[in-house]
Nucleic acid binder design. Structure first.
Lengths: 178, 178
DNA sequence: GGTTGCAGTGCAACTCATTGCATAGTACGG
DNA sequence: CCGTACTATGCAATGAGTTGCACTGCAACC
């Protein structure tokens, strides 16, 4: 149940409309927590009745009105409370793992092809993270205090992708070299 | 929608009751795909009406009757079809990443403590995988063909845990050493 | 003049998964 | 004999998340 909290973090950084949030969840935060706009609007409604956020309508030129949300005191309290509660380690869920166990009953060539594609996807994502890192944190040894979190998240993303690549390589070595 | 397929794999290896499957999903396969017994019974019902599996009642001494499921020809077809379709790369979802972005608005000490706990959990899981590997695959260079999948899955688990540990260490280095 | 894309908010239906509850017999330790 | 744990199957309610659809209007391209 962390979408609420992801939204709180995002609003704590900067007020936003549901639409703005949806775009943020397509990029930055979205690399580690996906959410569709439908879900965001629904949760925003619930959060507003819980008084964690409040909204006001903003009229715009040449564009539809928008509802800009901002975090409330209660929202900040909730965010602080949430950070002080231990996070359960999330279980992994790998469809590829299931497929690997299905090797004796399935199509080995297709699985190998799939792993190759997946390796490319991991490599592309890693390249993207590295680009972002070079762009936003050219000097990793001196990062502003309030940016350390975002930097560490980016590092986590890189480590995940590197791990993914390493796994694909091991699989290909075993399965393709025969 | 891979629980069906995880069950098909498990039944292709060996027939089982819902209860047996639930225990398998607490161990081996369960490290990469969790499922509760309620969910398993429900999905088994659906799979039986889809003719992917069939069941017969087995009476037991001193124990309740059980319904033993086995995979059908159609089930094997489905499994084969599924392995030949590319798997979408699953999005990562890290509550810890969200918490790291919440650092400026939250309780940094609690987050650091949380990361320490998480590091231990990763280390414990890694140790468990390494034990399993040593026990079941004492010689990784000569693994039977039908065991390669399970071995690769185990390797994937190890890589994930190693990545998790590396991330925790980076976080602790940044946040705790101050 | 028509299509595509962006900005903006939302409902409805559905699937997936968790949590809590129900039932029932056996085995075992204290 | 009492409580706990294991074997065994399942329903009901709720929450989380996806997919599909609906409506408006502007800007840009062909």
């Amino acid at each position: 149940m962390a979408l609420e909290h992801a939204i709180l973090v995002s609003l704590a950084e900067k007020t936003a409309s549901g639409y703005d949030l949806a775009r943020r969840f397509d990029a930055s935060i979205g690399h580690f927590w996906k959410a569709s706009h439908q879900q965001i609007y629904k949760v925003l409604g619930r959060m507003e009745s819980d008084k964690w956020v409040e909204s006001h309508l903003v009229a715009q030129d040449n564009r539809p009105d928008k509802k800009v949300y901002s975090i409330t005191g209660e929202g900040r309290d909730e965010l602080r409370r949430w950070t002080s509660v231990p996070t359960p380690v999330e279980a992994l869920r790998s469809e590829l793992a299931v497929k690997l166990r299905a090797l004796p009953f399935g199509d080995a060539d297709a699985i190998v092809a799939d792993v190759r594609t997946r390796r490319q996807a991991h490599a592309a994502q890693l390249a993207y993270y590295e680009e972002s890192a070079a762009k936003f944190y050219p000097d990793p040894d001196s990062i502003a205090d309030d940016a350390v979190g975002a930097w560490l998240v980016l590092r986590g993303g890189m480590l995940v992708e590197q791990g993914g690549i390493a796994w694909c390589d091991e699989i290909l070595q075993r399965l393709a070299e025969r």
